[in-house]
Design a protein around this nucleic acid. Sequence first.
DNA 1: AGAACGGCTGAACGTCATTCGTTGTGATCT
DNA 2: AGATCACAACGAATGACGTTCAGCCGTTCT
Lengths: 152, 152
Amino acid sequence: MGTGNGIVDDVDRALIAELQRDATQAYATLGKAVGLSAGAAHDRVRKLRERGVIRRTTVDVDPTALGRGVLAFVMVDSSAWMGDATESFAAVPEIQEAHIIAGTASVLVKVRTATTDQLQDVLRRLYTIEGVSGTQATVVLETFFERPVRAD
Amino acid sequence: MGTGNGIVDDVDRALIAELQRDATQAYATLGKAVGLSAGAAHDRVRKLRERGVIRRTTVDVDPTALGRGVLAFVMVDSSAWMGDATESFAAVPEIQEAHIIAGTASVLVKVRTATTDQLQDVLRRLYTIEGVSGTQATVVLETFFERPVRAD
DNA sequence: AGAACGGCTGAACGTCATTCGTTGTGATCT
DNA sequence: AGATCACAACGAATGACGTTCAGCCGTTCT
């Protein structure tokens, strides 16, 4: 069940690390980087996709260039069980991540907006979600780095 | 003008949204999705890369499949200015993100490990960073969603 | 108005993704 | 042990796609 299907060996990890770095490179290049032919590299990557280890190929974007220069983490307190509130949080487009957490708050969300005014508006909308009783927003002043999950 | 950035227009945003969804699709397909020829779509995407709006093409991976099933956010308290500590945090491979934040703590990090034991070990290593005086770890019980920055 | 600029189209060309038959290897069965 | 099976990698063939470019059109500037 869930996601434990199949094994991911060292070559798979090396392939994933390469793809995380640059998913546009040719399979011949990719194969050379891990000591495989183009065909074999292609085959392994295809299987990694089929098994859901690689979820998708996507692009990393500069948030500032899209007018999402304000980043904040918000601890959401609740007076009820929030386990089924996925859709409510997903409906707020400025929310980039939402997690149920252990501890006093019950949900932690990562929010990106253009301005702090818009951040305030997101907080207002959070309060309209059933069960939400409070929020504590923490604004990010500077991001050191954001990087992919370590593959090796 | 959408969100206040003149160099990224609505077609660019549509292209980015499509690429975030699936960066493997052909430029002909991509162009059709936004009402452009393959050549024109290619040209715009190339320029978005050159300008740094698109930082890179990468793959999204299932953390559990890589043995990084434990996710935690750690508030790091400090007794000194942490503005130049990028490298110290980057040196800890389990740290996926590190941000300087406003408020009582001074750094917020996102950590992925295989086990809670390993999480504890990361906390121990955080204390060895110059200026770090305390940590508050919050373990994620369930992730609702993690998605790309909204492009439109 | 004329010129210059920027962006789009459609086609041509070269590269690469994708498929497939073959081979080698390590495990399982008799 | 020998035979069989399952799996993975190789290397070549082919068809698709990325990439480039000349020509065209709408806009802006003088």
